[in-house]
Design a binder for these strands. Structure first.
Length: 938
RNA sequence: GCGCCAGUAGCUCAGCUGGCUAGAGCACACCCCUGAUCAGGGUGAGGUCGAAGGUUCGAGUCCUUUCUGGCGCACCA
């Protein structure tokens, strides 16, 4: 009967099974298992049967190694797209894919084979058998990696058709890729041409960049004078008279490529000087003159004239030892770092030279055979000689003919074959290309033009600068070399005719595609040309060569660039599986502007005339906290598995959603700790809502909505409903615009400020102290119920596990899957008058802070007197004390600032701890306010 | 070297077409609550807006240069 009377038992205190601690590392796998048991993807799709499809296509990651944080970022962003589309009621059949072929896997497998001592045995096998053996190893390895990566991606709680993914090595996929190729052939966009590649003389094969090792090597470095054909023309270019024949001086470290010299490149914007150097008239870049003078040891140098590189274009020179003339061409890759500013150009022996050669219509001339010796087109004294022996011979010849200015020995790093450790050369070989400037038969437009048009008018870019970037890349991109000389890939189904020419037509490719669809691309290695072309009828093929004899054909051995396979996925997956075309968007790292985006667009435009996507969303790269790129060697790479173990996928996803993905993103375990904190805040807010619904009636969502909306406009409940509606609209719009960060911030702000700091704090008193079934308390519960319903859905794309956990806490273990639901769609206007109430609350907080000086430390020991000159607050009078957290509030039209009244001398309700002025002794002996007395029935 | 992007409080970021003392959140400090409690609330202190020029009545916001970092491309003849 004393003041120690315990009213706690009479309060409606919150109860919930939704735990405060998420324990994500353990709870997530359980959720995954439950999803798997319930066949979540099939269930969700069934719920969306007949709904408007949302076509979204996964770019295939390369099937090598474990997933890294970059995969995590990409896959989680995609998952937020998939899940938010589902919540909008769209049917999204998202198929995860993997890029399976290619050198890194072959390289990896070969390394293992060599380590296992099997390489020599392999080399002894016949060609097709050897390739098949390698391919079998590669396929096994790739399958293993895919299984592992698939698990890792699912562990990120991503939702996709993991039961039926696509692999670029699936027979159906391979066949569809060949169909795309056939389509391009039909459009006249495929051709075969010489192109320089890294060539291993020891292994007589082309090598890719990854197969090169750079080693130190000593090479001769020579300065050579090339005599001008027309001294007068040179003189004119420099505005002087030439008394003797001027030369153009070049510098090279590969004298053996000089027999293939067809041009000299200058930079049109650089200045070039005509100089008299130790008696000889020669041209070098003005800026390099001192360097050249030092390099060749010239003692007497006199400048005769000067001109722009542009003025030299078209001038001709005599090759020093081959019977032909070359000309000066322009090239912007010419630098003033070393050399003479005039670059020896051999289109058959260098990438740049090659491109210049194409532009200038030069021969892609390569007099070097696959064994590294010269053919018969070179001067007699070089024929049959190895290029390495040729260096000395060439220098000797130049010396004797007086063209050599200076020869020295030069140490530099030079590419070597990673297997034989012998130096490689650049050598032009025949390759297959997709031409970007050839007219497509359909429209007469080139791929380049179609692509630039598409980028400019038909594709949305997020962020917008991607458009410029991609346009720039398209404007300058060369023809696409699609052939590779490897084993692990999709064969280019070309045959060699007896005369040596290639046989490859749309119809022949389709015939092979039918075989591949059934037997996979291994068929190319195991079947004869006749079997491969069993379904081919030359009589019906307008492109068939005359007198084709299938029995005389030989298979060729190039495989496709893996980008061609990945770049065909819009057909191999979207069209072949009936998902829809084009995709609403592709979402990848910004490096894919040159990669998958561009290399998907070119085949799609070629075959269909349409770009394969309507929008491109790109994200930046993850860098460490100092902005440096992640790399194993720097030791700053974060490990996905460790992150998941320490923080859980949900915290990782919460962090991803907060990242400004359009730029590079700094990542660090500290940021995950931070994300964990804010995740906890959201979780606890949800928990508070759920825990106060423990005794709420089992309203349907519509009933709860009606009840909440029925409260007077001046109640906190209506305020919250308006905020909730605004949040829902804002977050949904953010998801639609792929602005996950905005969604994240809006949700967090709502949980942290609107709910936790404002609403929950304000309504605690009525929830706990009002009679359990009082209309005021039920109204609040109805609003809270709506808040949980809405928040579960808004959070679901970001935090699928937590959202569903809350959803199940609300609806029970047998609740339908959250992802079969759609957004609630609350329609409640925001009442601008609330702003004044919120401002008043802030003012009260500040005034209370000051009142602590007077000893008023607990807000419930205070009354607030609020200035209300316009009477704006008047209608809200009944809610102000709760909103401000004080015992009571009085309005005064005549004061200018908030005043705090000390209530410590007034009696305090033993149940609600408030001093609201109605507190007095009751029949049970306790000191209670009117409301509390009624609630306990005394 | 070329193209694109970014550089705002200790950290992560807002600041639209230039205009009131540059805003959040987290972290930090101090305080309240102890009936959301391995929770909750309040108040506060933090910034030469990468640097240097320039345009303008006025620039974080426009222009130029420069530094740092990222992506892509090229180069190593």
């Amino acid at each position: 009967m004393s003041d120690a009377r315990d009213y706690k038992a009479t309060l409606n205190l919150p109860k919930t099974a939704f735990p405060m601690k998420a324990n994500l590392a353990q709870a997530e796998p359980a959720t995954l298992a439950r999803w798997e048991r319930g066949g979540i993807f099939a269930a969700v799709r069934a719920a969306r049967q007949g709904a408007q499809p949302f076509v979204f296509h996964d770019g295939p990651p390369y099937a090598n190694g474990d997933i890294h944080v970059g995969h995590m970022l990409n896959k989680v962003l995609k998952d937020m797209v998939v899940r938010s589309a589902l919540l909008e009621g769209r049917d999204c059949h998202f198929i995860p894919g993997w890029d399976c072929h290619g050198l890194p896997i072959e390289h990896r497998v070969m390394t293992d084979l060599i380590a296992a001592g099997k390489a020599a045995k392999l080399d002894a096998l016949p060609e097709d058998t050897r390739r098949m053996a390698i391919r079998r190893e590669c396929a096994q390895y790739t399958e293993k990696v895919i299984r592992k990566q698939s698990q890792q991606m699912q562990r990120l709680l991503t939702l996709a058709d993991y039961a039926a993914p696509y692999f670029t090595m699936q027979p159906s996929y391979e066949a569809a890729t060949l169909e795309v190729f056939a389509g391009l052939l039909e459009q006249g966009l495929v051709f075969r041409q010489l192109k320089p590649v890294h060539w291993s003389i020891a292994n007589r094969t082309a090598l890719a960049e990854a197969e090169l090792e750079y080693e130190e090597r000593e090479d001769p470095s020579v300065h050579v004078d090339f005599e001008a054909v027309d001294p007068a023309a040179v003189g004119a270019a420099f505005g002087v008279e030439c008394e003797c024949t001027p030369s153009f001086m070049i510098w090279t470290t590969t004298p053996w490529t000089l027999p293939a010299n067809l041009a000299i490149a200058v930079h049109p914007r650089y200045r070039y000087a005509l100089v008299e150097m130790d008696g000889a008239l020669t041209v070098v870049a003005t800026e390099l003159l001192p360097k050249v003078q030092a390099a060749v040891g010239a003692s007497d140098v006199r400048r005769i004239g000067e001109a722009d590189g542009a003025a030299l274009l078209g001038l001709q020179y005599r090759h020093p030892f081959c019977a032909r003339e070359g000309r000066i061409v322009g090239a912007d890759y010419v630098t003033l770092e070393d050399g003479t500013g005039l670059v020896h150009t051999a289109p058959g022996h260098g990438e740049d030279d090659y491109r210049t050669g194409l532009r200038e219509s030069l021969d892609i001339y390569c007099p070097v055979r696959d064994d590294g010796t010269y053919d018969d087109t070179v001067p007699e004294w070089l024929r049959g000689k190895s290029v390495w022996d040729a260096n000395a011979l060439v220098i000797d010849s130049l010396e004797r003919s007086g063209h050599l200015v200076k020869a020295i020995s030069f140490r530099h790093s030079y590419p070597h074959d990673w297997r034989s450790h012998t130096p490689v050369i650049f050598r032009a070989t025949e390759q297959w290309f997709i031409g970007v400037d050839r007219p497509a038969r359909r429209s007469g437009e080139s791929l380049r033009k179609m692509a630039i048009d598409a980028v400019e008018t038909r594709v949305e870019f997020v962020p917008a600068w991607g458009r410029n970037r991609m346009r720039g890349m398209l404007e300058s991109r060369p023809d696409w070399c699609i052939s590779r000389q490897r084993a692990w890939g999709l064969p280019i189904p070309a045959f060699k005719l007896p005369g040596g020419a290639a046989f490859l037509t749309a119809a022949s490719v389709r015939a092979v595609a039918r075989v591949v669809a059934e037997k996979g691309s291994d068929a190319w290695f195991t079947l004869s040309p006749a079997d491969l072309l069993a379904g081919y009828d030359a009589a019906k093929d307008p492109d068939a060569p005359a007198g084709l004899d299938i029995a005389a054909l030989q298979k060729m051995h190039d495989i496709f660039d893996v980008w061609f396979e990945a770049g065909s996925s819009w057909h191999s997956v979207l069209r072949t599986r009936g998902i829809g075309f084009p995709s609403a968007l592709y979402l990848e790292g910004s490096d894919q502007h040159r990669g998958w985006f561009q290399l998907s667009m070119l085949p799609a435009l070629g075959v269909t005339g349409e770009p394969p996507f309507s929008a491109l969303v790109t994200h930046g790269f993850l860098v460490d906290r100092d902005g440096r790129k992640m790399s194993k060697s720097l030791g700053n790479a974060l490990d996905v598995e460790t992150l998941l173990k320490d923080f859980g996928a949900e915290v990782a996803r919460w962090w991803v959603s907060s990242a400004p993905y359009e730029n590079d993103i700094r990542i660090d375990t500290d940021y995950f700790r931070l994300a964990g904190e804010s995740y906890r805040k959201v979780r606890n807010t949800l928990r508070f809502l759920l825990s106060n619904l423990f005794d709420a009636p089992a309203w349907s969502i519509d009933e709860a909505h009606r009840l909440a909306a029925a409260a007077p406009r001046e109640t906190l409940d209506r305020w919250l409903l308006g905020e909730l509606a605004a949040l829902e609209a804002d977050v949904r719009a953010a998801f639609r615009g792929f602005d996950f960060r905005r969604a994240h911030l809006a949700i967090f702000h709502f949980c942290n400020e609107t709910l936790s700091a404002a609403y929950c704090a304000a309504v605690k008193d009525r929830l706990y102290c009002d009679a359990a079934d009082s209309p005021r308390r039920r109204s609040t519960q109805a609003v809270m119920r709506m808040a949980v319903e809405v928040l579960c859905r808004l959070l679901a794309p970001i935090l699928p596990h937590t959202a569903e956990e809350a959803w199940r806490a609300l609806h029970g273990e047998n609740a339908p899957l959250l992802f079969t639901q759609v957004h609630v769609g609350i329609d409640a206007p925001r009442d601008p008058r609330w702003q004044s109430v919120m401002d008043a609350c802030t003012a009260v907080s500040k005034a209370l802070e000051a009142a602590k000086q007077r000893g008023i430390e607990n807000p419930l020991d205070a009354a607030a007197i609020l200035p209300d000159p316009q009477g704006v607050l008047e209608p809200f009078a009944a809610e102000l004390a709760d909103a401000c957290g004080v015992s009571r509030v009085r309005l005064d039209r005549s004061i200018a600032a908030v005043e705090i009244e000390d209530l410590r001398s007034e009696p305090r309700c033993e149940r609600s701890w408030r001093r609201d002025g109605t507190v007095r002794a009751r029949t049970d002996g306790g000191m209670l306010s009117d409301r509390d007395a009624r609630a306990v029935g005394v």
